[in-house]
């Protein structure tokens, strides 16, 4: 026998550590699913990955036109187009993970009813796909930086950290939603509304100084505000570090752990209800 692993199946859910180990064992499946999604998404299209750039590009044009030229909104000392693009960078990454991740378990209902694998692999694979889309948005950022002669900050070395928190926030929402909606799916209908609402309580379109200085902490009750501001802090040297980033990012960590905890509890029930 090649491998003498023993599997013990009981009614108890896995411990979180065991579950993490299982996910690690199936890590290649994460990239295989991501590759599948990318291939299938752009199969039988002429432009292929080129379509990925279309969405942020149109967003950039429309929002810049309306908010900057029509409404004359200001962004603390940054060209408005750059402000918006860096805001959308973090927000779109987050929202891609949320929307794709939320549907990922149901999308694979056929498979999870027939073959066991740790279900967390499904939203994790969507993170990889979201990363591909994110890097395409970065390609859009470069010509804008040159056009506005905006120098990059040395703090871009912190991008991986902010990316991590961005991912954790997305996964937190996915895990919590999935864990609470495997039986009754109402929550999956509610989340899109929350997301539409969320983009307006996150400094994506307007600068956070529309609130008076002593009330600015309100922004950071939303961890995504810290993530989006964190992106700008990493990229632009004239952007200030706010000490409030830290509790907000800590909040996203707690949310993620809560999500993972809940997801693990119900992970084996997905196949019965999917």
């Amino acid at each position: 026998m090649s491998n003498e692993i023993q599997t013990i199946i009981t009614a108890e859910p896995d411990t979180q550590l065991t579950y993490l180990k299982k996910i690690w064992k199936y890590r290649s499946l994460i990239s295989v699913f991501a590759k599948r999604d990318l291939k299938v998404k752009y199969a039988q299209t002429a432009l292929g990955l080129g379509w990925t750039i279309a969405q942020p590009l149109t967003g950039l044009f429309i929002f810049t036109f309306f908010f900057s030229y029509v409404l004359h909104w200001e962004a603390d000392g940054l060209p408005y187009a750059l402000y918006i693009l860096t805001g959308l960078l973090g927000w779109n990454f987050f929202s891609y993970i949320v929307f794709q991740g939320m549907g990922s378990v149901q999308e694979s209902a056929n498979v999870i009813k027939k073959i066991y694998f740790p279900k967390a692999v499904l939203p994790l694979s969507k993170v990889l796909v979201a990363l591909v889309e994110l890097s395409v948005t970065f390609l859009l950022l470069i010509p804008l930086l040159i056009w506005y002669e905006q120098p990059l900050s040395w703090r871009i070395i912190f991008i991986p950290i902010i990316l991590l928190f961005n991912t954790l926030m997305g996964l937190a929402v996915v895990f919590i939603t999935a864990a609470l909606s495997y039986k009754k799916r109402d929550l999956t209908h509610l989340v899109p509304f929350l997301m539409y609402f969320g983009i307006w309580v996150t400094p994506v379109f307007f600068a956070k100084n529309i609130l008076p200085q002593n009330l600015q902490f309100i922004w950071y009750l939303n961890p995504m505000a810290a993530v989006v501001e964190g992106w700008r802090w990493c990229l632009f040297s004239n952007w200030n570090f706010d000490i409030l980033f830290l509790p907000a990012l800590l909040g996203s960590l707690v949310l993620f752990w809560l999500g993972f905890y809940l997801f693990n509890l119900v992970e084996n029930k997905f196949s019965d209800f999917a």
Partner: peptide, 13 residues
């Protein structure tokens, strides 16, 4: 694929 309500299964391999 699905968990039992009670009891144990041990699978070797």
């Amino acid at each position: 694929i699905t968990k039992p309500t009670s009891g144990t299964v041990k699978v070797q391999g």
